[in-house]
Nucleic acid binder design. Structure first.
Lengths: 321, 321
DNA sequence: ACTGAGAACGTTCTAGAACTCTGG
DNA sequence: CCAGAGTTCTAGAACGTTCTCAGT
């Protein structure tokens, strides 16, 4: 999900953040294990062995063997992956289940998650505490309540963080969609301009040709000039029709896969609405070679047959404001 | 301890013993896991990975990594060393502690021992049984705990499922937006093609007019025909330039907010990255009246100063993959 | 034969228990 | 010394798969 650009930006921020938080948040109140873990994951030197998850709310040991051999001994007094996992569980980290669809990090990868262990959020680390052992052997009934409470707190925090991430993601997507919509509107306007131009040009050409024919008939010019003029005029109208000369090579192939992409099904949560966008035509601009004043409107499917004379400011699609 | 001779003899005996005991001791009453384990250890093919201990009363996994990768999957449905160890403990195998003097099998070796798991003694294997869980729990207290837990669990599971649905929906929306972006890019390309066409047409018109004027001057036509042709030609060239006639009013104002919207930040979940999208240029198609081959590129903000000659396949925005 | 409920076993993730280490 | 954290080995708990066997 994160582009190269974003990653590099994050990397830039990372160093600054590290320098800053190593002195503050990470040095006070953050357990040693958690600090070491954070540094391990943030360390770019072992990027292929251990790294952050794609969503930034988990970390991934991509290669447990290499991790045990080279990374673990750098920070701990053992090279035992099981011991490492034991520590993680003591600090309430949880392994993320590997499903069929979820093999993003490789077959051998182990992904762990803690609500307060997130990329670029060292300030949250101090909330990660070692789980207290239920030493209430003599206290009887309290154990159940405390245990349920702790579990509840953990799960709730996890849910909250997930909701937080989702909310953020939703805001971003919404914003991006608006941006896309505005771009699209601008393109539509520009297309309208183009179309108007072509219509005007069409008319001019018609007048021009008519004029030429008249002149030709009226005058006593040589036959060769007549034929030449007519030929060029015909070519010109052909150009105006957009179908032949100078057609950008490969544009068909560029557009066609997009057409296939279109069929992907429902877009929105619980909505079966169709896209107002490009039709299944395969071309965004319609088949302009068949009609001299081709409609540029790739219209909503509601109006299949648009009257040709209704060409003023066609709306490609309506955008949410 | 064991010479080559004795080993070969043992190997010879081994096959006979195996054949014999596979039919007797090992096929009746011996748990599957124990049988598999015995065969693994006895298998000479992986002698460097797993083998009997020197005293024949234990077995040694010399290289857990190789063992996990190659040996485990041959007999079990996983390649997880921890799961293997869990099974061993369930059958009451015990790890032999590695002391300073006791590194006979290497630093990474794991040695396990069971009184009835011995070299050349498959007859003992049937004595190895799964440990029975101490199911001495009273049925009384369970209901209470489960009930209080149950209500909570229902709610959290509901929340989790909702989050799961939202996450999925978000992924779909993201993917679809991705596709929309690609479509948009294709449209931009097509627009570029169109514009190029119009420019070509422009040039043709110019040449046409120039030709006509020349013809006109050379011939003995009337003055009126010349002037009329010139007038129409002038109008036509104006069209081709796209900048004056029929230019959609207000396109600047429509497009400019896109630039502002652009600065809005990350598109994706958990990413603090900047938007790669359209820059604040203001027009998708550039100012075509100022430059014959105007760049249509509304470029990323990273490249503020784009060289004018770089006009090939301009990117309106970079989309996350 | 077919079937389905339950037992036994396998796999995974987490926790318990006992030990060592370390700093005040 | 001793309390807390780290390390190691083993066990608990949950869930999935396979086996079994009675009842149809």
């Amino acid at each position: 999900m994160s582009t190269d650009l974003s990653q590099s930006i994050q990397a830039d921020m990372q160093s600054a953040v590290d320098d800053k938080f190593d002195m503050f948040a990470m040095s006070t109140g953050v357990p040693d294990f958690v600090k070491k873990l954070f540094r391990q994951v943030a360390d770019e030197a072992h990027r292929d062995i251990v790294c952050w998850g794609y969503e930034g709310d988990s970390f991934v040991v991509k290669d447990p063997n290499e991790f045990s051999k080279f990374v673990l001994p750098q920070h701990f007094k053992h090279n035992n992956f099981a011991s490492f996992v034991r520590q993680l569980n003591k600090y309430d980290f949880h392994k993320v289940k590997v499903t069929e669809e979820n093999k993003r990090y490789g077959d051998e990868a182990w992904e762990f998650k803690h609500p307060n262990f997130q990329h670029n959020r060292p300030d949250l680390l101090e909330k990660i505490k070692r789980k207290i052992p239920p030493k209430t052997k003599s206290l009887g009934g309290l154990v159940n309540g405390r245990h349920a409470d702790g579990e509840f707190r953990v799960i709730t925090e996890d849910l909250q963080s997930q909701i937080h991430l989702l909310t953020h993601a939703h805001a971003e997507v919404t914003m991006y969609m608006h941006q896309l919509g505005k771009q699209q509107q601008a393109m539509i306007d520009e297309l309208n301009g183009l179309k108007k131009n072509m219509q005007t040009q069409d008319q001019l050409m018609e007048e021009f040709v008519r004029y030429l024919v008249n002149q030709d008939a009226a005058s006593n010019g040589s036959r060769s000039s007549i034929s030449a003029a007519a030929a060029v005029a015909a070519a010109a109208t052909g150009i105006g029709g957009l179908g032949t000369i100078g057609h950008v090579p490969g544009i068909g192939s560029v557009v066609s896969p997009v057409g296939t992409v279109n069929g992907v099904g429902p877009l929105m949560v619980g909505s079966d609405a169709n896209v107002n966008g490009a039709a299944g035509n395969g071309s965004f601009l319609g088949d302009s070679s068949s009609n001299g004043s081709a409609s540029l409107c790739v219209d909503s499917q509601l109006k299949q047959q648009q009257p040709p004379q209704q060409t003023q400011q066609p709306q490609l699609c309506e955008l949410p404001h």
